[in-house]
Amino acid sequence: MPLDPHLKEVLLQFAAAPQPNGLEEMRAAVIEGAARSPKRDVTIAGTRDLTIPGPASELPARLYTPVGEGPHSLTVFFHGGGFVAYSIETHDHVCRELCAGANTAVLSVEYRLAPEHRFPAPVDDAYAALVWAAAHGEELGADTSRLAVAGDSAGASLCIACTQRARDEGGPAVRAQLLIYPAADFVNVDRYPSRRENGQGYFLTEERMTFFGQMYLADPAHAAHPHVSPLHAAQLHDLPPALVLTAEFDPLRDEGIAYAEALRQAGVRAEHQPGPGMIHGFANMTALSPAAAELMDRAAGWLKAELSEGKESAGSNLSASTVAD
């Protein structure tokens, strides 16, 4: 379908704005832009800032608590930003919307960024946060037997790595993974038509993705690591049920679709939710685009159902049933 008219206006504004010169200007620009961006009106019980232990340093985090009597389920959230930018502040409203829409406590975690901290540092931080959260449900006021991970873009990639590590290292039982336009293949980038079709003019560009990869990976051989490119993982079985959201005008569209299919082929219950007319980043644009808001509301509804008290925990040894596109 055509580009969402509301997001077309956003792209025109992006094109007219001065382009950041270098990484530090990019980081400052995205924080400033997030602060100016309009937000949807959602109601939650409150937030609490805290720090949690990481493998190298304390990690800033923010806990979002939904309205109503707890303990609620818990979703650990990782923000996107190409592994080099953004923060818990830039994704504050994404977490508020998930908290309200899915009736889940959300723990948003700020991991170390590249190039100061390259792979595997962000993965190590994310997994340490997941393990800590699973062990501190009482402190968080959450029922960690109903545990999920969620994230967008680079954050979705960290979610994928966390589910692999939890399976392989005897870690927490994760009931669901919400993956919003994940990057899933840093190796065979020419395989995906969406990389060519949407590599220019739709916010996330091919040039910027190349830059992010160079910043994140100190060794080019790391591109094929399963925690970086899960489409190259030898084993995708026994992972939590997944919802993969993609955007029609996103360079990452096709690899997100491919990852959902790879999970299904491995016997994991996985669903792909396409985003007609959407661009990369639509999760942060729900106040600007009713269609983006509807997609995120549907995703929150899926997460709520997966974390409901009456639903059997998935963890490992998942059902081989699948949900078609």
Rank of each mutant, 00 (worst) to 15 (best):
T51E: 14
S57Q: 14
S57F: 11
E58I: 13
L59F: 06
L59G: 04
A61N: 04
R62T: 02
T65W: 04
P66Y: 11
E69N: 03
G70C: 13
S73Q: 04
F77S: 01
F78R: 00
H79N: 00
A85M: 09
S87D: 15
S87G: 03
S87T: 12
T90H: 02
H93N: 06
V94K: 00
C95F: 04
C99N: 09
V106K: 01
L107H: 14
S108P: 01
V109Q: 06
R112S: 10
R112Q: 10
H117V: 05
H117K: 04
P122T: 00
D124F: 06
D125A: 05
V131A: 15
V131F: 13
V131E: 10
W132V: 08
W132G: 02
W132L: 01
A133G: 15
A133L: 13
A134W: 09
H136M: 05
G137P: 14
L140N: 04
L140R: 03
G141T: 05
G141W: 12
A142K: 08
A142L: 13
R146Q: 12
A148Q: 13
D152M: 03
S153P: 15
G155I: 04
C159D: 03
A161C: 10
T163R: 08
T163M: 11
Q164N: 02
A166W: 01
R167C: 06
E169N: 09
R175V: 13
A176K: 07
L179A: 10
L179H: 08
Y181T: 05
Y181L: 01
P182W: 00
P182H: 08
F186W: 11
